[in-house]
C-alpha cells in the first residue's frame, strides 16, 4: 500500500482512468470511421445488384443493343472498352517503365531531371476533361488520326502515364541498394545492373501499378468521348474483333451515360446491369493484380 495516496502500488489512479477512457473513446471513433468505409461500398454494390437483377445474365453481355438501345445487351461497348484499355496500356506501359527506369536509375539531381519530375507530378494532376481536349487537338486533328480508337487510346495513355511512372519508380526504389552495390563492385554497368538485378526484383510492383491503371482507363468517360467513342456502332453479337483501330467504337462508360440520360424508354434494369459489368471488370482486374503481386512476392525472400 502506498500510504500517501491510499492507492495500491502501481494501481490505477483517477488521472490514469481518465486517460484510459479517452484512449477507449479515441479508438472507438477512429474504428467507426474506418468501418464506415464499408457502408458505401456495400450500398453501391447491393443497390446495383438488386436493380440490375432482371438483366444479369450472360446473354446481356454477349448481345448487342436492340430497338434503339432500349433493349438487348452491351457487347459492342464491352469489347470497345477492352480495346481502349489494352491499346492505351500498350502505349503507356513501355514508355512509362522506360521513363521511370531513367528517372530512378540514371538521372542525377540536376535542373533538367527536376523539370521532368515536376512535369510527371503535374501531369498526374491534370483533370481528365483537359486531357480530352488535348487529345482532341493533338491526336484527332493535328496528328490526323481522326475520331478513332487510336486517338482515344493515346489520350488515355497520356492520362495514365504519370501514374505508371510513379508506380514503377516506387517499385524500383524498393529494390535494396545492397543489390546494386553488389553489381557495381564486380564492375557491372548500370544497364547490366538494371537488367540482371533491378528489373527482376521490381517486376511485381511494376505490373501491379500497370494493372491498376486498367481500372482508371476503363472508367474514364470524357477523354474517350472527345476522341473516339460513339453513341452507337452496329456490331455482330459476340464478335471479338468488331473494330478497326482507325474506327470509332463504343465503350461501357459512355454507353452507361447514354442510356441513362440520352435515350428515352430504356428497360429499367439495363443501365444498372451495365454499371455492374463495368464495376465487375474493374474489380476483376484489381483482383488479378493483387493475386499476381501476392504470387510474385511469395517468390522473393528479402
Amino acid at each position: 500500500m502506498n500510504a500517501s495516496t491510499g492507492h495500491a502500488m502501481f494501481g490505477e489512479t483517477p488521472p490514469v482512468r481518465r486517460k484510459l477512457r479517452q484512449e477507449a473513446l479515441a479508438q472507438w471513433v477512429f474504428g467507426a470511421m474506418a468501418a464506415a468505409m464499408i457502408v458505401p461500398l456495400l450500398l453501391i454494390v447491393g443497390y446495383l445488384v438488386v436493380r440490375a437483377a432482371p438483366s444479369l445474365n450472360l446473354e446481356f453481355l454477349l448481345e448487342v443493343p436492340k430497338r434503339g438501345m432500349t433493349e438487348g445487351g452491351i457487347w459492342p461497348a464491352f469489347v470497345g472498352t477492352l480495346y481502349l484499355v489494352f491499346l492505351s496500356l500498350a502505349f503507356s506501359a513501355p514508355i512509362g517503365i522506360l521513363a521511370a527506369v531513367y528517372l530512378n536509375e540514371y538521372a542525377r539531381d540536376n535542373w533538367f531531371n527536376r523539370v521532368i519530375n515536376l512535369a510527371v507530378i503535374n501531369l498526374a494532376g491534370v483533370p481528365s476533361i483537359v486531357h480530352a481536349l488535348f487529345g482532341l487537338g493533338a491526336f484527332v486533328y493535328a496528328a490526323r488520326f481522326g475520331y478513332s480508337i487510336i486517338s482515344a487510346s493515346l489520350t488515355l495513355a497520356i492520362m495514365t502515364l504519370p501514374v505508371i511512372i510513379a508506380a514503377t519508380r516506387e517499385a524500383l526504389a524498393s529494390v535494396p541498394r545492397s543489390f546494386r552495390e553488389a553489381c557495381w563492385n564486380v564492375g557491372a554497368t548500370r544497364w547490366q545492373t538494371i537488367w540482371a538485378v533491378v528489373l527482376p526484383n521490381s517486376i511485381s510492383g511494376i505490373l501491379t501499378g500497370i494493372i491498376l491503371e486498367v481500372s482508371r482507363a476503363a472508367g474514364e468517360t470524357a477523354p474517350v468521348m472527345f476522341t473516339g467513342v460513339v453513341f452507337f456502332k452496329a456490331v455482330e453479337r459476340g464478335d471479338l474483333f468488331p473494330y478497326y483501330l482507325n474506327e470509332q467504337c463504343m465503350a461501357l462508360s459512355m454507353h452507361l451515360y447514354t442510356i441513362s440520360t440520352q435515350v428515352p424508354g430504356v428497360k429499367e434494369s439495363i443501365p444498372f446491369a451495365t454499371a455492374i459489368v463495368l464495376l465487375a471488370l474493374v474489380l476483376m482486374v484489381n483482383a488479378a493484380a493483387i493475386s499476381l503481386r501476392v504470387y510474385l512476392r511469395s517468390r522473393k525472400k528479402w
Binding site: 545492397s178 552495390e181 553488389a182 553489381c183 563492385n185 564486380v186 540482371a196 538485378v197 522473393k300
Partner: peptide, 12 residues
Amino acid sequence: VGMVFQRPNPLP
C-alpha cells in the same frame, strides 16, 4: 578491385 560489405549482399 572488389569490395565486400558490412551486410552480406548476395544477389537474390
